[in-house]
Design a protein around this nucleic acid. Sequence first.
DNA 1: GTCCAGGGCCGTT
DNA 2: AACGGCCATGGA
Length: 214
Amino acid sequence: MNFLEIYKNLLEYFGSQHWWPVLNKKNIDPRFEIIVGAILTQNTAWTNVEKALKNLSEKKLLDRKNMSEVQEEILEKMIRPAGYFRQKAKKLKKFLQHLEKYYNNNFDLFLKTPLKNLRAELLSVWGIGEETADSIILYAAKKPSFVIDAYTRRLCAYHGIEFSKYQEYKDFFESQLPKSAKFFGEYHALIVAWGKLESKKETKTLAQKLIGVI
DNA sequence: GTCCAGGGCCGTT
DNA sequence: AACGGCCATGGA
């Protein structure tokens, strides 16, 4: 079973995923919500991130201007359920400072930056590593950058594929799949859904069948 | 009580 | 380049 067939299996089993944006409220820019979510979910269960997003939404802080102006200590309190709250508050501030400094807060212009430049730029921001950068590029800027996470590595490992570096996994997927943001986004979301299944003892066998290793 | 979740930074070797 | 410690909450 190749990785396109695995995709088809996962899509058939789980259905189309649509996880972004979560809140779907008017007066919240989903692209900014996605970026905030991408930072908050670093090594953290999504259910905890949802609590933080809810807090932010209630305080009107899911807004670039408001979040830029609010005290970092207040921001920390709001995102506390997401864990690593001091680090993550700092990361959000650093990202907003980047927008201000290099784009004069022209968010649309920022998101129009060509993929390779955008990626290099995001990686230069404190707190944004490869996975978070790719999530932002894929789900907020809607450009085809495949996201590699712990689940993706586990999926590969089941098929005897293991690399040491992030970029190697990324190249592996991008070189054999149609280069489409919609497709990459759906695939990564499905891999996460699969990963959650695989991590539970009761459904591990089912997960293994879905990707054709048993 | 222990383990881990949609990582990333930093200091040491 | 590779590795370990650190960051922190909430659910299983």
